[in-house]
């Protein structure tokens, strides 16, 4: 179902701050667009936390990063991802791997994400 999209699909760390990331449109990525960051009114995808998403048989395999290694919402985010992805037809299980490469920077934000953060009063 989903096309594997690894870090090459997104701007590299250190890209110009004016650049905005774009991510694939397919059922897995779109489902993850429904999952908000628990601390901000912005989806995990727009926040740039999803590194890759692919379907392996009936298992959704996700590579996920965080803005900080001490993110206190890690468990909550993964639980929300599990719940949403298991609603998809053809998905029977979810495997989430935390990765620290690519290193998260503001260059991983989408345009929508930047706008949402600015509306929330967060400098980008």
């Amino acid at each position: 179902m989903a096309t594997p999209m690894r870090s090459g699909a997104t701007p590299p760390a250190g890209a110009a701050s004016s650049a905005a990331a774009e991510y694939p449109r397919d059922p897995l990525w779109d489902a993850l667009r429904d999952v908000p960051d628990p601390e901000l009114a912005i989806s995990l995808v727009d926040m740039g936390l999803i590194v890759s998403a692919r379907l392996d048989g009936d298992c959704a395999r996700i590579e996920l990063t965080y803005t900080a290694m001490g993110c206190p919402a890690m468990d909550m985010i993964q639980e929300d991802m599990h719940a949403r992805l298991l609603q998809l037809p053809g998905v029977a299980s979810v495997e989430i791997e935390t990765v620290w490469e690519p290193v998260w920077t503001k260059a991983r934000l989408t345009l929508e994400g930047r706008d949402a953060l600015l509306l929330s009063g967060v400098s980008v």
């Binding site: 900080a68 290694m69 001490g70 935390t98």
Partner: peptide, 9 residues
């Protein structure tokens, strides 16, 4: 928070 996150990783 950062240090505990580094340890956790």
């Amino acid at each position: 928070q950062d240090e505990l996150g580094h340890a956790r990783a």
